[in-house]
Design a protein around this nucleic acid. Structure first.
Lengths: 341, 341
DNA sequence: ATTAGCAGTCAAACACAAGGTTTGCTAAAA
DNA sequence: TTTTAGCAAACCTTGTGTTTGACTGCTAAT
């Protein structure tokens, strides 16, 4: 899979990619002569070979080199560094994550915002897939004569409430009936059990009408599915990136952000508790061919807190992004061990 | 205030503005000769006079005319039409608003999305200011030994829940104690009462610790203030507008969208149950000088359902925007009268 | 009061030349 | 064998000058 490069070629490739990430301009041989102890001619020879194996590209005959998708891939697999955080940035992260939150989901949002802030890329989150989380309790609360609130607790600490309005009055007796029914039927089972056929919910000694039960199930399901909500942060960061001077690229990007399911598809394929990088066409989505996505899925003591993604141009500062993600990951785990979460 | 223009001048001004709204190109005299029964020379004379009184501008000596801010203002005050909806568009609106919702806030979001969809501008919503809504009930539900949920109902039908975690166990007795305390103290009063000094909440026969009460109040206040949430739809619409070919204008726009408080400030000044138009500098915000905002605040039987705003370039299709808003407004009122809401 | 005609103005489009980078290649040096 | 210096060729970028075409404003005729 990964080609063998000699030491100097690695250094040349790394230098080119890092220079290009910084400047967004094609990198010339003369440009690197300060960083490597050899002449520009030597570097040119190396560049020619790196181009031959597909790691570099030229925009025209006499231009400098630009990394190819394959080049970036080699870079993130072999050459990347993950210590690109300044003291100040670490402090900022620690500070942000120390915010007291009531729900784990808020913590994910905070991590997302922080990530966007430090990397200057757009960040996207989708909540964890809660379908296989185990229900540990269900409560119904009567808020008015025709308004019922359902509260579901899961083992992952995620709480969902749903407010349900009826066309008829609901009695306290019916509420208790519902509570018993759903508790018997669902506690200890995964959330997706809510999707079982209606008949499964009908029991012998029921005082509550079937229409009410049906409605309750519908509304709760709605809430569960909505929970895969997409949260977006820093969409305006795009305008600072030179690649978006070209209007059609910017257009592509904004459209991608709007078609959230495109990105959430990618986020959903991310492996649990890992950082994953998709460069350009690796996402296998036509609309995303000019962009890269780095996803980050964190397990906090087996609890999936959702997937965070960074989306930006293929010329993304992968090192920085990875560094921040790893640091956040570490910080969350430490806090958890020390009982802060 | 509003200047007196003779009939033909009005027609010329209207034609220029509507042409410019459509094409985003300066309008020449020859361009209008088909719509008005006179020669281009006559139109040129009229244009010269309209320019003299500040309703039109030129981009350079020999260019066509472009409406000035003052011109737009005259247009929206005197010349605008509000019947610019096609049958199809009305159908779409009706269809969308017929969606069954549980919370009024969802209806506002649907209206926002529809508005953005039909006008092709970015739409922004802020929830109603709930501070003076009257509390009609407060409930506390124990979700776990250390987790409490507070539910507040208001007369406007808006429901807020807050999940509160404690470092110590909460007993059922304490929950009842809290319920009594808050019911006595708050039912019938506006939500902002929650902001009263802590001492006001301390009563003689309390079994619940002051720290718990303090925490509860804090968390509930957090939720109330969060409710002025900004909901944004159609941010990617910008890329279709020619004025955003200029990168710095696009940058301005995206930054404005990100600095949501800027826009929500404007939305907050909107008068109840009315449509209000701010053209360019009329917002008195430096960052918004190149944009116009049309706000729409709807009262559904005295209940403020929030303010919706459309933001776009000063070259906005005001007629279309107003038409849609009026139609939505009418539809909501009709539905309400017919008991559909 | 309106209009035709015409000169004047300016932006946008195009072509062309000059200047500057950067490469690949060759031949010399290490 | 590897590295380097030197140089021609390629090609982008910038600037300049020219042309074209779309307007307007003005004047004089209708």
């Amino acid at each position: 899979m990964s080609q063998e490069l000699d030491k100097r070629k690695k250094r040349v490739l790394q230098a080119i990619i890092e220079e290009y990430i910084e400047t967004a301009e094609p990198v010339s041989s003369g440009n690197l002569v300060n960083e490597l102890e050899c002449s520009s001619a030597t570097i040119r020879n190396e560049m020619a070979e790196l181009e031959k194996i597909g790691f570099l590209e030229k925009t025209h005959t006499s231009s400098g080199r630009v990394p190819s998708q394959k080049g970036y891939r080699y870079y993130v697999d072999e050459l990347i560094r993950d210590d690109k955080l300044s003291k100040k940035e670490m402090e900022l992260i620690r500070d942000r994550l120390e915010t007291k939150v009531n729900a784990l989901e808020d913590l994910t949002k905070i991590a997302t915002t922080t990530l966007s802030e430090i990397t200057h890329y757009t960040a996207i989150t989708i909540g964890p897939d809660v379908n296989n989380h185990i229900i540990i309790d269900i409560k119904f609360v009567l808020l008015g004569s025709r308004v019922l609130m359902a509260v579901i607790l899961t083992d992952s600490g995620i709480i969902r409430e749903s407010i349900i309005k009826f066309d008829e009055d609901i009695t306290q007796e019916q509420v208790e009936d519902l509570t018993n029914l759903f508790k018997n039927k669902l506690v200890g089972k995964p959330l997706q059990t809510m999707n079982s056929p209606l008949e499964e919910f009908i029991m012998d000694e029921m005082k509550t009408g079937i229409n009410i039960i049906k409605k309750v199930i519908e509304e709760i399901n709605k809430i569960i599915n909505e929970s895969q909500q997409v949260y977006l942060n820093g969409a305006n960061k795009v305008v600072d990136m030179p690649e978006f001077k070209k209007v059609d690229v910017a257009k592509d990007f904004l459209n991608v952000l709007d078609a959230k399911d495109l990105v959430s598809d990618v986020l959903n394929t991310g492996v649990a508790d890992d950082i994953k990088i998709y460069i350009g066409e690796e996402t296998e989505k036509e609309e995303l061919r000019n962009f890269s996505i780095v996803t980050f899925n964190h397990l906090l003591k087996d609890k999936d807190i959702g997937t965070i993604g960074i989306i930006g141009p293929t010329r993304m500062d992968y090192s920085k992004v990875i560094s921040v993600m790893k640091y956040i990951s570490k910080k969350l785990n430490d806090d958890f061990k020390n009982g802060k979460l």
